Lab assay of single mutants.
Amino acid sequence: RHRTTFSPVQLEQLESAFGRNQYPDIWARESLARDTGLSEARIQVWFQNRRAKQRK
């Protein structure tokens, strides 16, 4: 699998969602996937990585 590159618009949507809830449930992730055009799995990994980045 190649590395996913996120567009500025996608990142804005993801960061906005992260600001509201750092642990989105499956319904929120699937909604974000539809809105961004990404797969739910990529959304899930993005949130995992974003939480790890915040802990540093």
Score class of each variant (00 low, 15 high):
Thr5Met: 08
Asn21Pro: 01
Lys56Asp: 15
Glu40Trp: 03
Pro24Phe: 04
Tyr23Thr: 10
Gln48Gly: 07
Ile43Asn: 02
Arg29Pro: 00
Gln10Glu: 12
Gln22Arg: 07
Gln10Asn: 04
Ser39Leu: 04
Ser7Ile: 04
Ala28Arg: 05
Ala28Val: 13
Phe18Leu: 01
Arg3Thr: 15
Gly19Ile: 04
Arg51Gly: 01
Gly19Cys: 13
Gln13Cys: 15
Ser39Cys: 15
Glu30Leu: 13
Pro8Asn: 11
Ala52Trp: 09
Thr4Asn: 10
Glu15Ser: 04
Pro8Tyr: 07
Ser39Asp: 14
Arg20Leu: 09
Asn49Gly: 09
Gln54Phe: 05
Gln44His: 06
Ala28Cys: 08
Asp35Phe: 08
Leu32Glu: 03
Arg29Cys: 15
Arg51Cys: 06
Ala52Val: 09
Thr4Lys: 08
Glu40Thr: 14
Trp46Gln: 01
Lys56Pro: 07
Ser39Glu: 10
Ala28Phe: 05
Leu14Tyr: 02
Glu30Ile: 12
Phe6Glu: 10
Ile26Val: 13
Gln44Trp: 06
Arg29Glu: 03
Phe47Ser: 01
Val45Pro: 01
Phe6Pro: 13
Thr4Ser: 12
Arg3Val: 10
Arg51Trp: 02
Phe6Leu: 11
Trp27Phe: 12
Gln54Glu: 09
Ser16Val: 09
Glu12Gln: 15
Arg42Met: 12
Glu12Cys: 06
Glu40Ser: 10
Phe6Val: 08
Arg29Met: 12
Ile43Pro: 00
Ala52Lys: 11
Leu11Arg: 07
Leu11Val: 10
Lys56Thr: 07
Thr5Gln: 10
Gln13Asp: 05
Glu12Ala: 10
Phe6Gln: 03
Arg55Trp: 15
Gln44Glu: 11
Thr36Ala: 04
Ile26Thr: 08
Arg34Ile: 04
Lys53His: 10
Arg3Lys: 14
Ser31Arg: 13
Asp35Arg: 11
Val9Asn: 01
Val45Lys: 06
Gln22Phe: 03
Thr36Asp: 00
Phe47Lys: 00
Ser39Trp: 01
Ala52Arg: 10
Tyr23Gly: 01
Glu30Ala: 13
Arg51Ser: 04
Val9Ser: 14
Ala41Cys: 11
Gly19Lys: 12
Asp35Thr: 14
Gly37Thr: 02
Leu14Arg: 01
Gln48His: 03
Ile43Gln: 00
Leu38Gly: 01
Asp35His: 14
Asn21Phe: 04
Glu40Ile: 10
Glu12Trp: 05
Phe47Asn: 01
Trp27Met: 14
Phe6Met: 07
Phe6Tyr: 06
Phe18Met: 01
Ser16Asp: 10
Trp46Ala: 02
Pro24Gln: 02
Trp27Cys: 15
Arg55Ile: 15
Asn49Trp: 12
Ala33Gln: 03
Ile43Lys: 00
Gln54Asn: 13
Gly37Ala: 03
Gln48Ser: 13
Ser39Lys: 07
Ala41Met: 08
Trp46Asp: 01
Phe18Cys: 02
Asn21Trp: 06
Pro8Gln: 11
Arg3Pro: 15
Gln10Trp: 03
Tyr23Lys: 08
Ser31Ile: 10
Gln13Thr: 14
Gln10Phe: 00
Arg50Pro: 00
Pro8Trp: 03
Gln44Cys: 10
Trp27Tyr: 11
Ala28Ile: 04
Phe6His: 08
Gln54Arg: 05
Arg3Gln: 09
Val45Glu: 13
Ala28Gln: 09
Ser16Gly: 09
Ser7His: 04
Ser31Met: 06
Lys56Trp: 05
Leu38Asp: 02
Glu15Cys: 03
Arg20Trp: 04
Asp35Trp: 08
Ala41Gly: 11
Glu15Thr: 05
Arg42Lys: 11
Leu11Cys: 07
Asp35Tyr: 08
Arg50Phe: 03
Lys56Met: 12
Pro24Arg: 02
Gln48Leu: 08
Leu14Thr: 02
Glu15Asp: 03
Leu38Ala: 10
Gln48Val: 12
Ser7Asp: 05
Arg20His: 06
Ala28Glu: 11
Arg1Ile: 14
Arg3Asp: 15
Trp27Glu: 15
Lys56Ala: 13
Ala33Cys: 08
Arg55Met: 13
Glu40His: 07
Leu32Tyr: 00
Arg34His: 04
Gln48Glu: 12
Thr36Glu: 00
Lys53Tyr: 09
Val9Trp: 08
Gln13Pro: 01
Glu40Asp: 12
Trp46Cys: 02
Ser39Gln: 13
Phe6Asp: 10
Trp27Thr: 15
Asp25His: 06
Val45Ala: 15
Pro24Thr: 04
Phe18Ile: 00
Glu12Pro: 01
Arg42Gln: 13
Pro8Phe: 06
Thr4Val: 09
Glu30Lys: 14
Ile26Glu: 08
Arg55Gly: 15
Thr36Ser: 03
Glu30Gln: 12
Asp35Cys: 06
Trp46Asn: 01
Val9His: 14
Val45Gln: 14
